[in-house]
């Protein structure tokens, strides 16, 4: 256990097989029972501290704002082990998130949770939010996105007559051939849009609040706020859906200033949608 001004961090081995490793951040001033805890999932293969320590910066800021947090390594990622169970990937992710919620409930008393995930972490947050009833909200960082006609027009028309764009295109082709096939990268695949849309609609009907954040780092797939409505339709204008587009930033927020903007944005979204109510008991 380590104490910092305003919160305490505790490290745990947790889960149904004691196979997961996580670090809980617990504010000194507890919320009442209706408050939410925030669970941050792995981004790709990066362990629980997140790309460039993003998850540490984020959870500590949220602790200062009064939210209990858990940054956790899911099965086989980071420092966590696997289990001997015979589960599909979706079942395993949901079971791991349920384990994480149990731990944070025991430590903080909160019974509802917001999941945060970047890239594959957003995909895992989506999977867990489909089945876990205690999930009250999700922050999708560069989550699912789909190319649309609008995307293609915005992407290719301005580039067609620019030499720099052709050069970048060719460099990326070469880069993918030279580096990506042989290296352990952090890529993932998207499920079909109709499937994802149906699952998001179900989440909204259950009252979940959803925050979609896109970065300029996925500009090969997302290039304008308008695109979100192009592929998700009416979901995009639902009152419990929020969208941000950090066009300048890269996919993993490598610059400290970009990380700070993201952390503040998630903090503000949480405070707006899940305001902290201090416990009446001292």
């Amino acid at each position: 256990m380590t104490r910092t001004q305003g919160f305490t961090e505790k490290a745990f081995r947790l889960g149904r097989a004691q196979h997961l490793i996580g670090v809980a951040g617990l504010p000194d001033k507890p919320q009442d029972g209706a408050g939410v805890g925030v669970i941050v999932l792995n981004s790709g293969l990066v362990h629980r501290i997140g790309p460039f320590r993003l998850h540490v910066d984020l959870t500590r800021q949220l602790n200062v704002s009064g939210y209990p947090t858990l940054r956790v390594d899911l099965s086989t990622l980071g420092d966590s082990n696997g289990t001997q169970e015979s589960l599909s990937r979706r079942q395993q992710v949901s079971a791991d998130v349920a384990d994480a919620m149990t731990l944070l409930r025991e430590q903080s008393g909160c019974v509802r949770f917001v999941l945060v995930g970047l890239c594959s972490g957003a995909g895992n947050a989506h999977i867990a939010a489909c089945t876990e009833k205690a999930v009250a909200g999700v922050v999708f960082l560069d989550g699912y996105t789909y190319r649309t006609v609008g995307f293609l027009l915005r992407h290719y028309l301005p580039r067609a007559f620019r030499w720099a764009s052709w050069r970048r295109f060719l460099l990326r082709r070469v880069h993918r051939q030279q580096v990506a096939p042989s290296a352990a990268d952090f890529g993932h695949k998207y499920p079909a849009r109709a499937e994802v849309s149906a699952e998001l609609r179900d989440m909204l009907e259950r009252g979940l609040k959803l925050y979609f954040v896109y970065s300029g780092g996925v500009s090969d797939h997302f290039n304008h706020r308008r695109q979100f409505r192009e592929y998700f339709g009416r979901i995009a204008v639902h009152k419990h859906v929020t969208l941000s587009f950090f066009e300048e930033a890269d996919h993993t927020y490598v610059l400290a200033g970009d990380r700070l903007k993201l952390v503040r944005s998630v903090d503000q979204w949480l405070q707006h949608n899940f305001p902290v109510k201090p416990s009446k008991t001292p």
Binding site: M1, T2, A11, Q18, V23, D79, N81
Partner: peptide
């Protein structure tokens, strides 16, 4: 033996496994 996570050092400021 499963690795044990925890904190140590001055004011328990250091994380270790």
């Amino acid at each position: 033996v499963p690795a044990i996570p925890g904190y140590f050092g001055v004011d328990n400021q250091l994380f270790g496994l």
